[in-house]
């Protein structure tokens, strides 16, 4: 019998596959089998609703996408009333990604969240004026936000890091010191698209966040660096599209992984990936995820 369960710092998952924040919402429950997933992270929510950036908000890049959504969301009250009760029907771990423009915002919003498996703190969104990447670049701020959130909740706290930090290992250490149970590495990479007709940036806010296969080797390296350097569980995110990518992340040190943009290309990818991991483990005779990391094939 194959055992896909993972647990770290009070986070327990039936398998390591988590749906990432910002790429799905309730209608996806019609297509994706949520009962099969290890977990899901709900879209970045803020205290008050945010309308997000002007359109266009998304476009393709070679092997991926770039977005400038600007954290459009209906706020924490809406999440508690309209979203959480529906998600609770599924047999999967529910996490919620939170966003604030100040440390104060982060502590107030974390007070309002309960009855989930954990909070993912977003200090890494490239598409907002205040907060986001600017918080995630500075170890002192990362520490202060993590600490403020941990003080206001008894839930496990995961901090989602930005690859834009000049030293991501230092940021991960700051999150650990602040009390985080895990870090997610990482959010999108900052990028730019120019419209050659108008000779202007395509996005109103100029910068966008690059995701998809284009960022996989880079994000994988961040996971490796953090895993080597800091005693904190890492959740891998960036460019995963198939089970082999998942294996790479697990071997690099990730405890579990998140799937983002891939569901735009193939909404059935999460289920296919889980099935293929099981198939792979059967073929190799592996019984659990530890075997994947530790058994070297002849």
């Amino acid at each position: 019998m194959i055992d896909l369960t993972v647990s770290f710092n009070h986070i327990k998952l039936k398998n390591p596959i988590i749906l990432a924040s910002g790429v799905w919402d309730l209608p996806y429950t019609e297509i994706v089998d949520f009962n099969k997933l290890g977990g899901v992270v709900y879209k970045g929510i803020s205290l008050k609703p945010r309308e997000g950036n002007p359109t266009p908000r998304i476009t393709e890049t070679p092997c991926g996408v770039i977005n400038s959504i600007g954290l459009a969301n209906k706020g924490v009250e809406n999440f508690n009333k309209e979203v959480l009760p529906l998600l609770k029907k599924f047999d999967t771990a529910i996490f919620v990604n939170i966003f604030g423009e100040s440390i104060e915002d982060f502590s107030r919003i974390s007070e309002k969240i309960s009855d989930v498996s954990g909070i993912e703190v977003n200090i890494s969104c490239p598409n907002v004026k205040k907060g986001g990447v600017s918080f995630g670049r500075d170890p002192k701020t990362a520490y202060a936000i993590t600490k403020a959130v941990c003080k206001n909740t008894s839930l496990p706290v995961i901090v989602k890091l930005t690859p834009a930090a000049s030293n991501i290992v230092e940021i991960a250490q700051a999150c650990l010191d602040g009390g985080a149970s895990a870090v997610t590495a990482c959010n999108t990479y900052q990028g730019l698209v120019i419209d050659i007709e108008s000779k202007k940036p395509l996005f109103d806010k100029v910068v966008g966040g690059v995701s998809g296969p284009a960022i996989k080797p880079q994000a994988l390296y961040k996971v490796y660096q953090i895993s080597e350097g800091v005693e904190i569980p890492v959740i891998g995110s960036g460019g995963i599209t198939n089970y082999k990518d998942v294996l790479e992340y697990l071997i690099a040190g990730a405890k579990s992984i998140q799937l983002g943009s891939v569901i735009f290309n193939n909404p059935l990818a999460p289920m296919e990936i889980i099935d293929n991991i099981i198939k792979y483990m059967n073929e190799k005779g592996y019984r659990n995820l530890k075997d994947i990391r530790e058994c070297i094939d002849e």
Binding site: G22, I31, R57, N67, F264
Partner: peptide, 12 residues
Amino acid sequence: RRMGCGLGGCKS
């Protein structure tokens, strides 16, 4: 509109 997902997920 340019769409990412078509399913209300990405808000693009």
